[in-house]
């Protein structure tokens, strides 16, 4: 009886897909619409997090631990990526005194 009630009140998986797609789209808009490199980094974090949440949702609904392990490794890579990315940002700021990504076209030769 408890079990059937719990099954009836379960959150549909579609809701998670909708929510994560919306979050991912907001991240994409941020990357496209902003010129501040820091805000672009934050938008990339939003996209990573929406993918993480969707992987966790599928993993929990399918009862498969591989998805959650994968999310753990994504978090590992994201932490390393942010450390390196912000280090690069500091270097760019030191040489150009701006984090406007339009300034980075001088990387062309």
């Amino acid at each position: 009886m408890e079990n059937t009630i719990a099954q009836f009140q379960i959150i549909p998986l579609q809701y998670y897909i909708l929510f994560c797609s919306a979050l991912f789209s907001i991240g994409v808009i941020g990357v496209l619409a902003k010129r501040n490199a820091l805000v672009i980094f934050m938008s990339v974090e939003l996209m990573l997090n929406s993918a993480n949440l969707l992987l966790t949702a599928f993993s929990a609904y399918r009862n498969d631990p591989a998805g959650q392990i994968f999310v753990f490794f994504i978090m590992v890579v994201a932490a390393a990526e942010v450390a390196i990315g912000l280090g690069l940002l500091v270097v760019v700021y030191r040489s150009t005194h701006s984090i406007d990504i339009n300034m980075l076209n001088r990387l062309k030769w």
């Binding site: 379960i10 929990a60 009862n63 631990p65 959650q68």
Partner: peptide, 23 residues
């Protein structure tokens, strides 16, 4: 059509013990 098969409130895979064993 995404079939909602399991119940996330009843799964035990996300707990530290089970996830640690897999990891």
């Amino acid at each position: 059509d995404v079939a909602t098969v399991g119940n996330p409130e009843l799964t035990q895979i996300g707990l530290v013990k089970n996830l640690g064993k897999t990891l």
